[in-house]
């Protein structure tokens, strides 16, 4: 191996190894969070993020259904799926990516991804039916109960409906 290439390989490998091994300090630890903060720009740029927290705690949901409930001025409701374009639906049991997306997106108050989603839903609903005046994002969730409570009555999950909105669809308020 030529000398310059050898030197580059040694430096590149050592830096990559340092980045990977820094992951041994887990998220949530003081050292782990300091290192993650310092390395975040490089890790995001290169796709070498080191967060391996899969199933670090129990899954809390047995069931999840998301939909958009839109209303017209007379109170009539129309229900749409949550995925754009086309208001598609998803099944949480088989499709993990929409589940990840909607459980990580913030609506109350909206984070940048949540705000952008609400804006896009508003636009799509206006195009779908100009008579609609407002919409809400509704999540039907089945929260798994504590094991002791399930043992008592055999009911696995408690159904909770979380509603975000309503968000107005008029141009001046819906954006």
């Amino acid at each position: 191996m030529p000398r310059p290439r050898r030197a580059i390989t040694l430096v590149f490998s050592s830096l990559c190894a340092a980045n990977i091994l820094a992951g041994l300090f887990p998220p949530g630890s003081a050292t782990g969070d300091t290192l993650a903060g310092a390395l975040a720009p490089a890790r995001w740029t290169t796709g070498t993020w080191q967060r391996w927290e899969m199933f670090h705690s129990i899954p809390t949901l047995r069931h999840m259904e998301m939909h958009i409930v839109a209303r017209d001025a007379g109170g009539g409701e129309r229900i749409f799926g949550p995925l754009l374009p086309g208001f598609g639906e998803f099944e949480v049991e088989g499709e993990k990516r929409p589940y990840y997306l909607f459980t990580r997106m913030e609506f109350d108050p909206p984070d940048p991804t949540g705000a952008e989603y609400l804006r896009r839903v508003g636009e799509a609903l206006r195009a779908e039916d100009p008579e609609l005046v407002e919409f809400s994002v509704v999540a039907d969730l089945g929260y798994i109960r504590h094991l002791a409570h399930i043992r008592k009555d055999g009911t696995l999950a408690k159904r909770v409906t979380e509603t975000f909105g309503p968000y107005p669809l008029r141009d001046e308020g819906g954006r």
Partner: peptide
């Protein structure tokens, strides 16, 4: 035109 905004 999807669910996730690029700028966000």
């Amino acid at each position: 035109v999807g669910t996730v905004g690029g700028a966000a």
